[in-house]
Design a protein around this nucleic acid. Sequence first.
DNA 1: AGTTATAATATTGTCAGACCAATTTTCAAT
DNA 2: ATTGAAAATTGGTCTGACAATATTATAACT
Lengths: 230, 230
Amino acid sequence: MVIQKTSLVNIVIEKIKNYILENKLKPNDKFLTEKELTEQLKVSRTVVREALISLQAVGILKIKPGGGIYIADTKLGTINSILKHHYETHGVKIRELIEIRKIIELGALRLIIEKQVPLDIQQLREINESYLQAITTNGDTKKFDRIFHQSLIKATDNDTFYDFSEIIHQYFALVRIDLTENQESLIKSYKQHNEIVDAIKDNDLLHAQKTMNDHFEPIFTFIKKMEEES
Amino acid sequence: MVIQKTSLVNIVIEKIKNYILENKLKPNDKFLTEKELTEQLKVSRTVVREALISLQAVGILKIKPGGGIYIADTKLGTINSILKHHYETHGVKIRELIEIRKIIELGALRLIIEKQVPLDIQQLREINESYLQAITTNGDTKKFDRIFHQSLIKATDNDTFYDFSEIIHQYFALVRIDLTENQESLIKSYKQHNEIVDAIKDNDLLHAQKTMNDHFEPIFTFIKKMEEES
DNA sequence: AGTTATAATATTGTCAGACCAATTTTCAAT
DNA sequence: ATTGAAAATTGGTCTGACAATATTATAACT
């Protein structure tokens, strides 16, 4: 029987967490100072500081030197840094990430059409036209491509889904991949975008997903070639 | 112009991370001691300790009192604890998590069939038979249901996909949901499982996904009823 | 020689006090 | 009322000490 002896620091961490929950502290709220904590919890400043730093590391608190301690807005930042280290130590297969992104995009289409969420078709068109313009003027095509896909995910009316999608995207961004796209393939992408919007408008899930699937095809062939070379 | 002044602790954290990368340290490897770190980095023990505790918080190191410091096996643990706090403070809509789970399961079917991964059909059948037995003998039905679905995700030959699926599942487990299932509905689930396996065997993605979609239907109606009551 | 109990050592945990650096507050001068 | 310097507050780092835990070395025994 192993009895997990818990250190003072861990006790303090739990107490602080509970304190935040019980007092319903929101992001950017001011928290107690180190001095107040040492007095109220009757532990040394060392213990308090180690607990605070630990909570800052996981994105719960934000320590401002000289300015006090605040509730952090726990977003993706911390998770991303963890994933970054995980990627650097373990190494993650690019193919796996792309497969996941495909699943996410296909899933977004399903949610949009199945739930009949309100969708700003016109806005999607405009984004895609900006995409086209970027293509013809050697502009930032990746930017508008990303906005287009991001808009679809956002439209699913599922914030958690969007958060996870962003995490995957950030994770993917760690991998530098030089998929040199020529004008022709970019134009094709533009047309596929429009075709996807059409299919959504027609509530044609199968068509939308098929087109999205095709949309992903070039990158898969690229990955396959890359894997063969190495 | 904001100049991000970086503290000594943060510098040490980065140095330690790099040290781990450069020396290719693996989980459970013994790391340097506090003493060695203070000497090599020429900083106080306070700074070293705060850096170590920070790295332990994000699941990179594991500190054993009196026994030294080790490389932790960075898995889902830390991310889960972050999501747990996120859930407790923000509150996450159950519907969103279930939608994500559906997307994942449907995606798994697509990956399995599209990639034609080797799949132990027989094993899936056996798991489902255990599921049936649990149904008829008032056994642990949830256990075998989970194993069945887990097996499908695992079969996709995509470890990252599986990891994320597990994170979602853990996240979902935080929400206690009493979906009282009667014998009849459980039997239906059993049949659907088998139908999904059949469809996979026939490479019939549409059929597999349609059945999986139906499989999720009861929980969605349950959620909808719950939302209406509150 | 091999095993076991004990002592010595090494390592992390906690404490106290001091001083530095950054920020916020106070308050006098304008 | 505004500004700007001084004071107070707050977090950052350092040192040294002792406690609690784990590991290693030693001694005793079979």
